[in-house]
Amino acid sequence: MYAFEYHRPTSIGQAATLATEVEDVKFLAGGHTLLPTMKMRLAAPASLIDLSQIAELHGIERSAESITIGAMTKHAEVVNSSEIRESIPALAEMAELIGDPHVRHRGTIGGSVANNDPSADYPAACLALNATIITNKREIAADDFFQGIFTTALEEGEIITRVSFPIPSRAAYAKFRHPASRYALVGVFVAERGNDVRLAVTGAGADGVFRVPEMEQSLSRHFAPDALEGIIIPPEGMNGDIHADAAYRAHLVGIMARRAVQAAASRG
């Protein structure tokens, strides 16, 4: 790791000000992507701003219509939140599939969403649940937020404060883990809200998380695995590595979509 300056503000305002004052800044959330990258000397920020002590970034709130999660909320907190378990159980189940128990004690929703790793789980949940990403400056719809691998609508110095998820009628996440890294080789999040069905895929796409309109349309007519029969996901635009080439990933999108729908449908 290269040397850096460390800052630990206690308010969003302080953090935002610091970000404009010091050079070459990275915000430190759970650190479970950033720190390994820095250890490998693949990232070399001059300053780290640790967001952990900002009270406004913590906490889970439930309203009649939505669940709103503070950006510094750890995966384990989402897993264990009774509000989330009751309202969007699929979200808690998804969080329990991130990394491993120790990672879930540190990794945060805000960090995951801001990083937009093409194999991360949260982007699929955000997109399928039609979440709103709330920053210190504005609110951004998930459809507008994720803009390709490791790329988001966030501007320089902009801080995610909360992520708000409308409560669906039913939803589920099916993940096929990468054998080595345990990130999503293919992860499919499906959510139904009224007549609106959204289905998002992570891990597979060369440009990161994406929705599958053809599946969504078919599912909005008939929310069952057999609604996906005959929908072929082409390998073009899929990721490939030694563990899974584009054709296999494309195939898995179909399989995982069916399994996610099955799981969601069984919620009645």
Partner: peptide, 21 residues
């Protein structure tokens, strides 16, 4: 699960637990 893979240029593709299972 396991297999060390070099690409044609001789780079070790499986050089961490992220790639070597």
């Amino acid at each position: 699960l396991e297999g060390a893979v070099y690409d044609q240029s001789g780079q070790l593709v499986t050089a961490s637990f992220n790639d070597y299972c």
